[in-house]
Structures are given as structure tokens and as C-alpha cells.
Design a protein around this nucleic acid. Structure first.
Length: 469
RNA sequence: GGCGGUGUGGCCAAGUGGUCUAAGGCGAAGGUCUGCAAAACCUUUAUUCGUCGGUUCAAAUCCGACCGCCGCCUCCA
């Protein structure tokens, strides 16, 4: 398996430090608002990586932090005349709700900055003791010139950055590139006691601290949006490696932006949709399918038209899975044997995913598989049970478990509500009677009226099936 | 100014030296099945990969120039 590593700018063989364990850290949200669907791309694609690693037999330890204290949260709290805790809890909970709706597997831990203040203070103290950081009347900064490898992730050079000179001049810093580890509290701001006085942690330090605390000195994978490469991840490397004297991260993974009309979706441009709003109009699976159709590192132009197209494509996958399940449950098997090479499709799927999580290719394999399955079903009179077992296994392990493009629980709820099921079956029976009497007007009326309330009937030689939309 | 990404059919998108007259999805056209639908299947839908040159027996794929779009360098997934 190969992963493109931002640090080396190459695809590299994936060799975890301590197999079968894989440690993975993903930069989570700052909880000051609902997250937008562009942020959602990072969460979903990280989830795909995690799920595929599990498919490969790795035991993934997955940590995602929640930044629950920072300028934006303070500003929001002031605007609403409340405190930062209320804001961060509100949006932290909303975040957990939304990622759950997006069918993202839970992290092992969602550590919060404010719950790790002591560890943060400890790391800052260590950085000061070792000469990497300095305190200027209550503000502590990291001295980038002290850290040799500064710029190695983003490919930037310190002197060139200085020449760029778009950095705010701050008299307290010895170098404009130095970044805050500890921010002195201003009047009315929330604060924690520290050796440098009342204040709060800077943004970058929390990831270094929590990554170390929950996953160790060197972790396998650290992922996040491309906009975090500089300065956030660069700074994390500097802090962590300065203190730990160990390589911080083995594989850096960065996700491309979600664009709207070719522009990066962002809060500041105002061109965003919250994941929440999108989920009200489209299924989580369609959102996932849309994201999977583009490689994770490239840009993805987002539009509702594309989402609708994905919703259609998803139907094809879902219909096939439902059909296979129904045939298995009804035991309507024959004894015809399929020549279909299931092993080939499994291999193709794995080759695609092994190649830096090439989900567009993996999807092509799945769609190809589905076409073959349906083709077999429509060409042969009755296939044997083995065929359906293998087809079911394949789609469950790939489309359902790795890509989460279908939720088996939902299918069950749809068909297992006994009363509802019996009612619909009664109507179906009556309609078949009408059909047999060539009373097509009545038959069509039953079908149309059921459709109006969201129940779609589909006729086949053996009878009618239904699905709830 | 520095660094990076990207340009493939109507739309989205994979492919980075020969298997490419280019995967897959959406859309469109025709057909099979059906009382009609829906679903599904079959067939068709790029001799061409931003433009112009070059390297090579061979290029969407390598090199050069040019054009277009986007991003990072400031908080940002």
C-alpha cells in the first residue's frame, strides 16, 4: 500500500511503526459554528482512510481534537453575551451529531484543548527550558530560528517567508515568523493560570500535546486540510520535534479544497454551505459518493447539480444491494453457476485503494462489478446461492464497510416494520388481483397513490417488491 | 514576489511512456423486458487529452515555451 506523503512529496510504501497498530491524528474543528461541507470533506476522507486501514487488518487508533478555546470562540461568545464554554459545547455537540449523520466512524478520543491545559503548560515549559521558546511579559513564542528543520513540510524557507512580509509586525517577537504558544489574557477574556501568568494556549500547541499524549512521540498518519500545511502543521512539527527529539509524523496526508465556482469554500468568503443544511436536502451517502469520485488530494468543485447526479449513481448501488439481500432472504435460488471472477474484482478494488486511496478507481471497480452482477442476474434463469453470497460479501466489504455508501441498518428498518410491511403487501396483493383482471386503471392507481406517500412498487415476473424512498 | 496545484467527452472524473481509437458515474439517443411504469440489461455517445514546438520506434503521459484557472505564504479543513 502506498500513501502520498506531503513531507517527502512522494508516494511511499506504507509501513506502520508498530503493526498491526496504526496511529492516526486528524485536525478537528474549532467549535465556534456549524462546520461547512468543505470541512466535511476532510472528515469524510479521513474516515475512508481509517476504514480502509481497518479493512486491511490494521488496528487504527484514531484521535481528532476539538479546538474549544480561541479568538473566534471568544468573539462569538461576546457577540451572544455568553461564555466560551457554552459556545464550544453547543458547537462541539453539533459537530458530533453532524459527523455521525455523515456516517463517519467515531474517533477513539476527541480531546479538547481546555481539558489538557496542564499538559500544554508542561510542553511549553519544556520548550522554554530547552531554549526553543521565550516569554515576553506573559506571551510565550516559539523561536523558529532555533529549530533546524523549520519549513521542511511546506517547502518554505525562513528568509523567503520574511521577505514575503505579509506577517503582522509584532514588537514582542524576535522574528515575525515566531508563533504563539501561550497568549496572555486580555481584559475580560477567559484564562488559565500558568507560570507566565493568566492566559490561554495558542492554537498549534494543542495538536502537538494531544498527539503525544494519546498516540505517542511518533505517529503513523497525521491528516488535515491543505490549508493547514503552513503554518499549522509546520509549527506542530517544530514544537513536537524540538521537545521529543523524535520524528513527529511518518506520513502527512493533506486533502484538497472543496471549491464553489472554482473558489475555495470558506467562512471568510461567505461561499459556504453547512454540512447540516446539505444533509437536510441530500443523503450522507450521496455526499460521500460525490467526494469519493475525486481523488482526495485534488480540488473538488461542489454544486447541488453534482450532488443530484451522485444521488442517482447511489441508487444503482443501493438497488443492487437490496436486490441481492431480498433474493437471499427469500431463498429463491436455482442451480446455475456463474463464471464471474469475484476474486478479480476484489483484487482490482484493493489495487485501487492501495494506490494512495484512489477512490475514483475503486468506485469504477464497484460499478463495474454491479453491472456484471446485474447482467448475470438478468441473463441467467436462476443462479445458485453461492453467487448471491459472494456478491453480498463483496459489496458489504467494499461499498458498505469501507466506503459507507449504504447503511444496512436502514434497509432493515425499512423492511422489518411488520405492520407496515403487512399493510403494503396487502395492497400489493390487491393490485396483482386487479392486474390479473386486466383492471389496469385500478392497478395504476394503487401504484401511483403509494408512490405519493413515498412507497415505490416495482413489478417483476415473480411479483412486486417495494421500496420506501 | 516566493512556493504549490490544475486544464481529459454535454457535466463530473480516472489514467502519468506502448494493453489508451482513454476506466467509471451523471446526462442523452435507440433497443430488450413490461399492460404501462420503475428497476435492470444490451447498443451508441472523445481517433482525442489547454495551445504550440521538441524528445522517442512509440506521448494524454517526458522536456520547453505560452495561455487559462485555483491555492498557500494572515485565521481557515
Amino acid at each position: 500500500m502506498q500513501i502520498f506523503n506531503t513531507l517527502t512529496k512522494k508516494k511511499e510504501d506504507f509501513v506502520p511503526i508498530n503493526p498491526p497498530e496504526v496511529t492516526m491524528y486528524v485536525c478537528g474543528p474549532t467549535v465556534y459554528d456549524f462546520f461547512h461541507i468543505g470541512n466535511g470533506r476532510t472528515f469524510i476522507m479521513s474516515d475512508i482512510i481509517r476504514r480502509y486501514l481497518e479493512y486491511k487488518g490494521y488496528k487504527v487508533k484514531y484521535v481528532m481534537n476539538l479546538t474549544d478555546i480561541d479568538d473566534k470562540i471568544i468573539r462569538k461568545a461576546n457577540e451572544e453575551h455568553t461564555d466560551t464554554k457554552e459556545i464550544s459545547e453547543r458547537y462541539g455537540n453539533a459537530f458530533l451529531e453532524d459527523i455521525s449523520k455523515l456516517k463517519i466512524k467515531k474517533a477513539d478520543v476527541y480531546p479538547k484543548a481546555t481539558e489538557n491545559i496542564n499538559d500544554i503548560i508542561k510542553m511549553i515549559s519544556d520548550l522554554i527550558d530547552e531554549g526553543y521558546a521565550y516569554n515576553v511579559s506573559g506571551n510565550v513564542f516559539f523561536n523558529v530560528n532555533k529549530f533546524n528543520g523549520y519549513g521542511k513540510l511546506s517547502g518554505k524557507k525562513i528568509d523567503e517567508l520574511e521577505a514575503g512580509a505579509r506577517i503582522e509586525i509584532n514588537d514582542e517577537k524576535t522574528n515575525p515568523l515566531d508563533f504563539s504558544l501561550w497568549k496572555k489574557a486580555k481584559e475580560g477574556e477567559p484564562f488559565w493560570e500558568s507560570p507566565w501568568g493568566k492566559g490561554r494556549p495558542g492554537w498549534h500547541i494543542e495538536c502537538s500535546v494531544m498527539s503525544l499524549k494519546y498516540l505517542g512521540k511518533t505517529i503513523d498518519i497525521h491528516a488535515g486540510g491543505s490549508d493547514l500545511i503552513f503554518p499549522h502543521h509546520e509549527n506542530e512539527i517544530a514544537q513536537s520535534e524540538a521537545v521529543n527529539k523524535n520524528q513527529f509524523v511518518k506520513y502527512w496526508v493533506h486533502f484538497g479544497f472543496l471549491n464553489i465556482q472554482n473558489e475555495k469554500m470558506s467562512k471568510s468568503l461567505g461561499n459556504f454551505f453547512t454540512a447540516r443544511d446539505i444533509l437536510n436536502k441530500y443523503s450522507a451517502e450521496a455526499i460521500r459518493l460525490l467526494f469519493l469520485q475525486t481523488h482526495y488530494a485534488g480540488p473538488l468543485n461542489f454544486s447541488e447539480e453534482l450532488l443530484s447526479a451522485s444521488e442517482k449513481g447511489l441508487e444503482k448501488i443501493k438497488n443492487t444491494i437490496i436486490k441481492i439481500k431480498e433474493i437471499r432472504e427469500s431463498h429463491k435460488f436455482g442451480n446455475e453457476i456463474s463464471e464471474l471472477d469475484f476474486h478479480y474484482f476484489k483484487k482490482q478494488f484493493e489495487e485501487a485503494m492501495d494506490d494512495d486511496f484512489n477512490t475514483p478507481r475503486a468506485l469504477a471497480v464497484i460499478f463495474d462489478f454491479i453491472k456484471n452482477i446485474n447482467s448475470e442476474i438478468s441473463q441467467k434463469e436462476k443462479l445458485d446461492e453461492q453467487f448471491y453470497i459472494k456478491a453480498d460479501d463483496y459489496l458489504t466489504s467494499t461499498a458498505v464497510n469501507v466506503l459507507a455508501l449504504a447503511d444496512l441498518n436502514n434497509f432493515k428498518n425499512e423492511s422489518r416494520n411488520n405492520l407496515e410491511d403487512a399493510l403494503i403487501k396487502t395492497l400489493i396483493d390487491l393490485r396483482i388481483k386487479a392486474k390479473n383482471d386486466k383492471n389496469y386503471q385500478l392497478a395504476d392507481e394503487i401504484r401511483n397513490r403509494l408512490k405519493e406517500i413515498g412507497i415505490e412498487l416495482m413489478d417483476s415476473k415473480t411479483g412486486s417488491t417495494y421500496k420506501i424512498c
